[in-house]
């Protein structure tokens, strides 16, 4: 009895809520529809989403439908929750660290697209996942607060502990995991010691990038873990060179964002066409100033001037995703132990 009543009330809410908000306005067009799962910032009004779908719709005789979740990690969670019933044709926005786990779901199929034009530092290639942009992690600093930024990871670890940095938590965020892997790449077995030393410089560890960058721009710390491309946003959109990325002599850890075709794709040919379009000049030209990441193939026009001023890492670190998947828990434990010590 209580079940039926509950069911009825819930249905009531649904009808009420659906009427008020007018949900599900999409997917009624007669033409083919391509459903792309991505992260939320891709499809905001200033993100690449709208421009990309407009450009692709001109050549595909189809309609592009986006489903956006919080971020790349959430994207994988969403797919696992949806399982076989997922309506995703293309998933765009995982990063290379998640590739092994994504493959393990058995949800993706080889793309069969010619990717010889793709050129990312470190030379990542895969038969299932295609890179569409990349960025290097970097320590971004405030030039008004810090006159001599660290020149290397070692500098950062051993430098003046009164000059603080805000970092992200590897348990909850992608940049946090990025820094963890960066330190691992440089320090190897001695990563724990490095973290124990760096701890003195860490003002706080935030759950995500937004909190860290918010604290940084409020002036709470002169340094934050972000991307080499962050200064481009401030130069292009805010016309200021105040925030700069510090080039590190050891090299930088890379984040490569990838997309793939799902085995559920209603029209694999259309999905493949999209992936091909994704590494073409039109799509690639949209990326830099909307997603604030670096393109992976040639763009139609040269990149904006600000991109020329960005740090170009001399060396790129990328730990194979299988290795990351196998060791992530142990490395995070190492980090926890080192960072929790008093």
């Amino acid at each position: 009895m209580s079940i039926s009543l509950h069911g009825r009330t819930l249905a009531g809410f649904m009808i009420a809520a659906a009427t008020v908000t007018g949900v599900s306005a999409s997917a009624f067009a007669a033409e083919k529809t391509l459903t792309v799962y991505t992260y939320e910032s891709f499809i905001t009004e200033w993100g690449p989403g709208a421009k990309v779908s407009e450009a692709f719709e001109k050549v595909c005789d189809c309609k592009v439908d986006y489903v956006g979740v919080a971020d790349g990690v959430e994207l994988l969670t969403r797919l696992k929750l949806e399982g076989e019933g997922s309506k995703a044709d293309v998933v765009l926005g995982l990063d290379t660290n998640l590739v092994a786990e994504a493959k393990a779901t058995g949800f993706f199929v080889p793309h069969g697209v010619d990717t010889t034009s793709v050129d990312v530092p470190g030379g990542f290639t895969d038969d299932t996942f295609i890179p569409y942009d990349y960025g290097h992690f970097a320590v971004v600093y405030d030039t008004e607060m810090l006159k001599s930024p660290p020149k290397s990871l070692r500098d950062l670890v051993e430098g003046d502990p009164t000059q603080k940095i805000v970092i992200e938590d590897p348990r909850t965020s992608t940049p946090g995991l990025g820094l963890l892997l960066w330190v691992k790449s440089v320090y190897g077995d001695r990563a724990g010691e490095a973290w124990a030393k760096l701890k003195a410089r860490v003002l706080t560890v935030t759950p995500g990038w937004s909190e860290a960058y918010g604290l940084f721009t409020k002036g709470e710390a002169p340094m934050v873990l972000s991307y080499t491309t962050s200064p481009a946003y401030h130069m292009v959109a805010e016309d200021t060179e105040r925030y700069q990325a510090a080039p590190f002599t050891e090299g930088h850890y890379i984040q490569i964002e990838v997309a793939a075709l799902t085995k559920n794709a209603k029209d694999p040919e259309l999905a493949r066409k999209f992936l091909d379009f994704m590494i073409g000049p039109e799509f690639q030209s949209i990326i830099p100033t909307t997603n604030w990441m670096m393109p992976v193939t040639a763009t139609k026009e040269p990149l904006p001037e600000a991109f020329g001023k960005l740090v170009e890492p001399r060396k790129t670190f990328l730990i194979p995703s299988e290795e990351v998947a196998a060791n992530r828990r142990a490395w995070i434990d190492e980090w926890l132990t080192a960072m929790s010590r008093n």
């Binding site: 909850t172 860490v202 003002l203 706080t204 560890v205």
Partner: peptide, 25 residues
């Protein structure tokens, strides 16, 4: 707790729950 806690020594069970549903699924 995470933002103002200064480091992972300040973590709550909620952080672990979030962790379990996120990277670890």
């Amino acid at each position: 707790v995470l933002t103002l806690g200064g480091g992972p020594a300040a973590s709550t069970i909620e952080v672990a729950i979030y962790q379990a549903l996120r990277f670890d699924f």
